[in-house]
């Protein structure tokens, strides 16, 4: 989906969102139902650099200044984090971590945060953007991944064909919307052919934000069967050991 098509589908009542320098999107929009929302994002599969991360974080902190609990919708088509020596030297981890922290803080301060993935997002760029929102939606064109299969093949020293075959039996490592939904990362999958996106967004914006329930989702969907149970067992024994 192009940013223009996505924006038109999500906000038929109107928006001021533009794609600016560095492919950073920002503006406001009127959600169906009349709620004004802040919209931020990344367009054109742009790798997440320290500059983009700090700009997005700064814009979110500006939104928090008003203290009006305005929902924040993050529209993401990035790549992985940018891979350069220069960015790593400057401490890219702090820029990505800062963005994840600021998105999380917005949620904690009463801003409903919704991530809409309409393109690619991988590795650290995925963690620092849509995975940091309270609710992650995948729409047409979404392709989330941790690492692409050829790269996994190199690291695991397995032939690509073998990996592709294994990926058919488990959602645990393969890229794509379906495997990541099965493990609980993606809350909902929306396709334009299946109905009006603006009404679905209005429903999500009106819902009480979930606590981090992604491990429960992964267990219910069968893609990550152990995580929730293991976390619960540790927590129970933590309490039991305290005396």
């Amino acid at each position: 989906m192009t940013p223009a098509d996505l924006l038109a589908a999500l906000f038929p009542s109107g928006h001021t969102v533009v794609v600016g320098p560095d492919n950073i999107m920002s503006g406001t929009a009127l959600a169906t139902g009349g709620t004004e929302v802040a919209v931020l994002g990344i367009a054109n599969a742009t790798p997440l650099s320290p500059e983009i991360a700090i700009t997005l974080a700064g814009q979110i902190l500006d939104i928090l200044r008003a203290d009006d609990r305005k929902p924040i919708v993050l529209l993401i088509d990035t790549a992985s984090q940018r891979m350069t020596r220069r960015d790593e030297m400057l401490g890219l981890y702090e820029y990505l971590g800062h963005l994840a922290k600021v998105i999380t803080l917005a949620g904690a301060r009463g801003h409903r945060t919704v991530g809409i993935l309409y393109g690619t997002a991988a590795a650290g760029a995925f963690i620092a953007t849509t995975l940091a929102t309270q609710t992650l939606i995948a729409v047409d064109g979404a392709h989330p991944s941790v690492m692409d299969l050829p790269s996994i093949a190199r690291v695991t020293k397995l032939p690509l064909e073998t990996l592709e075959e294994k990926a058919r039996t488990t959602p645990i490592f393969a890229p794509g919307v379906a495997p990541l939904a099965a493990t609980g990362a993606v809350a909902e999958i929306w396709t334009a052919a299946n109905g009006d996106l603006s009404h679905r967004l209005a429903t999500v914006l009106a819902a009480i934000p979930p606590a981090d329930d992604r491990d429960q989702l992964g267990a219910a969907r069968g893609g990550r069967k152990l995580a929730h149970d293991v976390a619960e067992k540790v927590a129970a024994s933590f309490a039991g050991e305290a005396g």
């Binding site: 940091a132 991944s145 490592f173 393969a174 981090d212």
Partner: peptide, 26 residues
């Protein structure tokens, strides 16, 4: 980083860890 043999579970675990770390700090 993420264990690539379990890439999706590992990636999510990192995201869940970040959220939980921040909740501890809060």
């Amino acid at each position: 980083g993420v264990r690539l043999q379990e890439a999706n579970a590992g990636e999510l675990a990192v995201s869940e860890t970040i959220r939980a770390v921040l909740a501890v700090r809060q």
